[in-house]
């Protein structure tokens, strides 16, 4: 995600400090998934993405919103707290952060097995990702029940 040299110097310095202060989490258990051609994929976004009917995210949100696979793009908005990323791209083409159409095209082409029924969204900008452990385990369990083989994490 982005070269530091492409950011405003103040933002680059801020992110470098954040990265330095971020506590190490370490690798999780290694899991061998099925072949990509047979795998069902779910999107997990940290863009603060949600439907209009959902409560917006707030500062430090650790909960999640579900995005059903048949959600229409005109029903999706962003309530991410950061002023430091470009929302205009999402306005132009929602697939730029939520590539649901692209996944469907890969299914049609036989390149992946399927697209999940449910996708998940979080608020990013969390200095300590370990805060998400409990919710992460919960949606991992839910995705497994839904037949998901691969969580495709898309940061903003």
């Amino acid at each position: 995600m982005v070269r530091l040299s492409d950011l405003h110097p103040v933002e680059a310095e801020h992110l470098l400090k954040r990265a330095k202060d971020m506590p190490a989490i370490g690798p999780g258990d290694w899991v061998d998934p099925p072949s990509v051609k047979e795998a069902t994929v779910a999107i997990v976004s940290t863009a603060g993405l949600h439907r209009r009917i959902d409560p917006p995210f707030t500062i430090g949100s650790l909960d999640y919103r579900i995005i059903p696979g048949d959600t229409q793009f005109d029903d999706l908005v962003l309530s991410h707290i950061s002023a430091n990323f470009d929302r205009s791209a999402f306005g132009q083409d929602p697939n730029i952060i939520f590539p649901i159409d692209r996944l469907r095209e890969l299914v049609s082409a036989g390149e992946i097995g399927g697209v999940a029924r449910w996708h998940y969204s979080f608020m990013g900008a969390m200095p300590d990702p370990s805060q998400f452990e409990k919710t992460g385990e919960e949606i991992g369990r839910l995705m497994a029940q839904d037949g998901v083989d691969v969580a495709f994490l898309v940061p903003i």
């Binding site: 982005v2 190490a24 952060i97």
Partner: peptide, 18 residues
């Protein structure tokens, strides 16, 4: 720091991960 099992670093601007 997170050590994800598999990650692709992309050079795109923030807000444009694809």
């Amino acid at each position: 720091a997170v050590v994800p099992p598999r990650a692709l670093w992309v050079p795109f601007p923030l807000g444009r991960p694809l």
